Computed example of a mutant assay.
Amino acid sequence: MSFIVRRVNFKISSPLIQTRFASLVSYDNYLERRFKQWYSTGAIDKYQDKLLKKAKEQGFNSISEFLASAREDIEKKKKELNRIDPLKELEDYEKKMSGNNAKMTNARGPIDMNQKKVPFKTLDSFLNVEKIKELSKQEIEFLWRAKWMNKDDALCAVVPAEVFDRMLTNAKSSPIFVLPLPRAAADGKEASDQTQSVELHYIQWQFVGPNTVHCIMTSLAEFKLHNEFAKPHTIFQFHLEMAKEKKIVLMNGQVEPDTNVSLQDAQLLLLNVQRFWGAMGEETPIAKQRVKMLRDFTKGSPDFNVDLLISLSQSMEN
């Protein structure tokens, strides 16, 4: 499967975000001034006895150790204040794309909060687990693929357990991310490099049972509109019942029929789920970049960059 690789120039121009960062810089400077004011040489000489007493109360052997710890606390506070909300970093891009005449995912309204919750499906919902345990790994794979082969809106896979374990480790520490999906112009015409449309999708892992993990997908625009009541357009289910004995994890996914997300769109998003959550390893330079971006998003690091996210997702390198 091949896609045209294009970059989108992304620039944060929101006055609200600029004001926010300006206030953080001012507060950083304030902390530095206060540190110098209270812990200057003159202040140390004047309050040496009190500082030494304070240092010993907190388990330090000297004033210098106490002051070094105080500076570390200030640096930690500065890092905390400089955290960003990555979803807000995407606002300018979403606004830009909304006026770009692109074919975006249909909004379907929120989930009814009063709707009765249906129990999640385990592997037993599809195959008799006790019976297939007696089969070989190859026979289980054949049955699993045969189960879904005639369903036009379904995807399935058999994932090696060690590969899924890598994804699961990253999913537990970083369960939420955004992934771009290339979109054609609404009129079907080829877009220039500067106007190539990319729609952002919200990805969330849910650990619903001891042997069942879900990866749900919805458009970022719909998630921002409805939050936890946003309707997923695609849900992938991973079943771990065969992981220990057969060293495989069975996956099935379904694309909802009332959206304009195609099976090919879901496959591309799933490919990038594998890439960014480390299924293909973390050894190559580009694989390291992808996993780092996932972690930067989770930590709210200023290093998170939408332009780089799009570039990494469209690159054919692994």
Rank of each mutant, 00 (worst) to 15 (best):
L268K: 07
D296W: 06
Q264S: 15
K292C: 06
V273D: 01
Q274C: 12
K288V: 14
P285L: 05
N260H: 08
N260F: 14
F297T: 03
N272W: 04
D296H: 11
A287H: 05
P285I: 09
G278M: 05
K288I: 12
L268H: 12
T284L: 15
D296C: 04
Q289Y: 00
Q274Y: 15
G281C: 05
A266T: 11
T259Y: 15
K288R: 15
E283T: 06
G278D: 04
P302M: 04
T298W: 08
F297N: 01
A279V: 08
S301F: 01
D265I: 12
S301C: 05
K288T: 10
Q264N: 13
D265H: 11
V273P: 03
V273A: 04
K299Q: 14
K292V: 07
D296V: 00
K299H: 09
K299I: 05
L269V: 13
W277F: 13
P302Y: 00
T284P: 01
G278E: 06
F297R: 00
T298C: 05
M293K: 07
V291S: 04
N260G: 09
F276C: 00
I286A: 10
Q267H: 07
V261N: 10
V291G: 03
M280C: 08
S262D: 03
T284E: 13
P285E: 09
N260C: 10
T284Q: 13
G281T: 10
E283N: 06
F276K: 01
T259G: 02
T298L: 02
A279S: 13
